[in-house]
């Protein structure tokens, strides 16, 4: 579709803008609007083959490609990090096929495509968070037959999911799920939040941003509109709780972020650092500034846990 003289059309490599053809975008756009109209309901869509393997974010890429425009600024994260393989290759893909601006800063981005994390910095109205989803149906492990789970969703029969959580309590004394923790959206549809840690589940509720979920292999799109109730399943005597850590981030000393354990040598050395690299870098930069201007904290003081 790139015409001569129209600079913003020019992706340089002869691709349609954002890779997908216009008919596919229109189909995905209609799907997205229905997904937003029925929060948490998985809308089937005609997922296309993308130039990367299933499992690498083909669903998220198709959603991003259908919404992105020349005025957007794209951020891509993988496990919270901007510099991991999946994030780097997807960001580069969109630089090539849509020529849009990219950023690593959460606050600057209009579209954030994510694998397995929600950024630590709160999102704002007008921002769009696109999740890559491997298995969109939270009931898949209970019954792999889609015609059955579709009926369970249609009639809101979610007792079986409560039973699996109860089995955890009977066996381990607590709900053992730590990621992909099922959540009830708008008090009606049970939703898989994609494999984000349950630490991130509370961030989905009443978020001012638009949250879109794309599953490429399973060909499902679903959404959580802004300001929508998203309740993680639990029991009165076993309320939902998120992970906590004893220490703080070794690089930025944050005590409120999600920490990754990093092995540092082969003698058992390890440290805990923020999984959200943008959040961590920003805090380190702020601290360095404080030190320069007469603050008291040295940048690497928190490095030993």
């Amino acid at each position: 579709m790139s015409g001569p003289g129209n600079k913003q059309c020019d992706t340089g490599d002869g691709y349609s803008f954002a890779y997908l053809d216009e008919q596919t975008k229109r189909m995905i756009r209609r799907t997205l609007l229905k997904a937003l109209s029925i929060p948490g309901y998985q809308v089937p869509f005609g997922g296309r083959e993308m130039p990367l393997a299933y499992g690498w974010g083909t669903g998220g890429i198709q959603v991003t490609a259908s919404i992105i425009g020349p005025d957007d600024r794209l951020k891509v994260i993988d496990q919270g990090a901007d510099d991991t393989t999946n994030a780097v290759s997807i960001r580069r893909f969109f630089e090539i096929v849509s020529n849009v601006a990219t950023t690593e800063q959460t606050a600057e981005a209009t579209i954030i495509q994510t694998r397995h994390r929600i950024p630590e910095a709160p999102l704002q109205e007008g921002q769009i968070l696109v999740y890559q989803v491997p298995q969109p149906d939270p009931l898949h492990k209970i019954d792999p037959r889609e015609n059955e789970t579709r009926k369970m969703h249609a009639y809101a029969e979610y007792g079986a999911m409560q039973v699996t959580l109860y089995e955890d309590i009977a066996r381990f004394g607590r709900i053992a799920r730590t990621y992909d923790y099922p959540a009830m959206v708008n008090a009606r549809h049970l939703m898989s939040p994609s494999p984000i840690p349950k630490f991130d589940n509370p961030k989905m509720e009443n978020n001012p941003a638009i949250q879109l979920f794309g599953a490429g292999r399973e060909k499902r799109i679903y959404a959580v509109p802004p300001y929508t109730s998203v309740r993680s399943l639990d029991f009165d005597d076993h309320p939902f709780e998120v992970q906590t850590w004893k220490g703080c981030c070794a690089l930025c000393s944050s005590t409120v972020s999600y920490l990754d354990e990093v092995v540092t040598d082969d003698r058992g050395g390890r440290m805990f650092v923020c999984s959200d690299t943008d959040y961590c870098n920003k805090r380190q930069a702020d601290r360095a500034l404080t030190t320069e201007t007469g603050g008291i904290v040295a940048p690497d003081e928190g490095a030993k846990l």
Partner: peptide, 20 residues
Amino acid sequence: ADPVFDTQAVFRTLMSAVAY
């Protein structure tokens, strides 16, 4: 005039209208 970018911009407005 420009089907690709005009429909993209209109879609974003439609999506905002459904989301908000």
